[in-house]
C-alpha cells in the first residue's frame, strides 16, 4: 500500500468550482472519509462534507468517488486510488450544491412527507401479532439508511431531472414497506401510479447497484409494486373480474 495518495476534490458552490489536489498520508484501513478529515485538520479547515457515524449506519457521507456514488466511510483508499495514487471525490450530482461535498437533499424529506404513514384499522387486536415470514420482506426495505445514493444514481432524477414526476427508488421501497405490511389498510396503488410515478422507473437497476445496505430495490421492491399496479390498473382480466365480483376486501 502506498504511503501517500492524492485526493482530487471538487471545491466550489452552485456558482462554480474547480478540482483541487490534496496529498494525504495513508494508514491501514483508511477510508476516503479519513482522507477528507485529514485535509480538514491539516490543510484546509474550510472543506465542507457531511458525516456522522463513520460506520456506514447513518448514510450522511454520500459522495461520488471516481464517478461512483458511494459512502465515503465505506470506501477504502487503497481500492479507489488509481495507478498514480489519485482518487477523485465529487459531490452528489443529482442535488443542488451547497458547498464542496455538501448538497441540498431536502427534496427527499419533502417527498417523504407525501407518503401516508402506516394505517392500521381499529379492529385489529393489540398488541399486534405478526409472523416472521410476514415481516421479513419489509424488514429488508427498512434497512434503508437514507443515504440517497439511489436517488442520486437514478437516471430519472439525475439525467431527466423529473423530480416533479417520480418519487425515486428510496421512496418506492418506503411505499413497498408500507404496502406489503401485513396490517396496513391504506390503498397506496393510486399514489404509486400517479403522484409517485412508478411508471417512470425503467428498472435499469442502478439503485440496486449502489445501495450500501444491499437492498434489492428493484427485484424485491419496485418490480413487485409494478406488478401490483398492473393488477389494478392494466390487467384487463383482473379489471373485468373486479368489475363483476366487486373490489376485494383487504
Amino acid at each position: 500500500m502506498r504511503d501517500k495518495v492524492t485526493i482530487r476534490l471538487f471545491r466550489g458552490n452552485a456558482d462554480g468550482g474547480t478540482e483541487t489536489d490534496y496529498e494525504v498520508t495513508t494508514f491501514p484501513g483508511m477510508v476516503v472519509l479519513d482522507a477528507i478529515h485529514q485535509i480538514q485538520g491539516t490543510q484546509d479547515s474550510t472543506v465542507a462534507c457531511r458525516w456522522n457515524c463513520k460506520a456506514a449506519k447513518c448514510g450522511s457521507c454520500s459522495a461520488e468517488i471516481n464517478g461512483r456514488p458511494r459512502l465515503m466511510c465505506k470506501s477504502h483508499v487503497e481500492d479507489f486510488a488509481d495507478s498514480n495514487g489519485l482518487i477523485r471525490v465529487h459531490p452528489l450530482k443529482t442535488f443542488p450544491l451547497i458547498k464542496d461535498l455538501v448538497t441540498d437533499v431536502s427534496i427527499n424529506y419533502r417527498t417523504a412527507e407525501k407518503i401516508p404513514p402506516l394505517t392500521v384499522s381499529e379492529d385489529i387486536p393489540r398488541p399486534f401479532k405478526m409472523q416472521q415470514i410476514d415481516v421479513e420482506r419489509i424488514q429488508e426495505f427498512r434497512k434503508c439508511i437514507e443515504c440517497f445514493l439511489c436517488q442520486d444514481v437514478c437516471h430519472v432524477l439525475r439525467d431527466h431531472n423529473r423530480k416533479d414526476g417520480y418519487f425515486g427508488p428510496r421512496f418506492m421501497i418506503k411505499i413497498a414497506a408500507l404496502n406489503m405490511h401485513p396490517l396496513d389498510s391504506e390503498n397506496r396503488l393510486r399514489q404509486l401510479k400517479e403522484e409517485g410515478g412508478i411508471g417512470y422507473c425503467n428498472i435499469t437497476k442502478c439503485c440496486e447497484e449502489v445501495c450500501p445496505e444491499h437492498i434489492h430495490l428493484t427485484d424485491n421492491g419496485i418490480i413487485p409494486l409494478k406488478e401490483r399496479v398492473a393488477d389494478y390498473y392494466y390487467d384487463p382480466l383482473k379489471i373485468l373480474i373486479r368489475k363483476i365480483v366487486g373490489p376485494k376486501k383487504r
Partner: peptide, 17 residues
C-alpha cells in the same frame, strides 16, 4: 408497543409477538 403502531417492524417470536 406503541412503536409498532407507528410502523416499527420488530423481529417476531413463533407466537407472532
Amino acid at each position: 408497543r406503541e412503536l409498532e403502531e407507528y410502523g416499527a417492524v420488530f423481529d417476531r417470536t413463533p407466537e407472532g409477538l
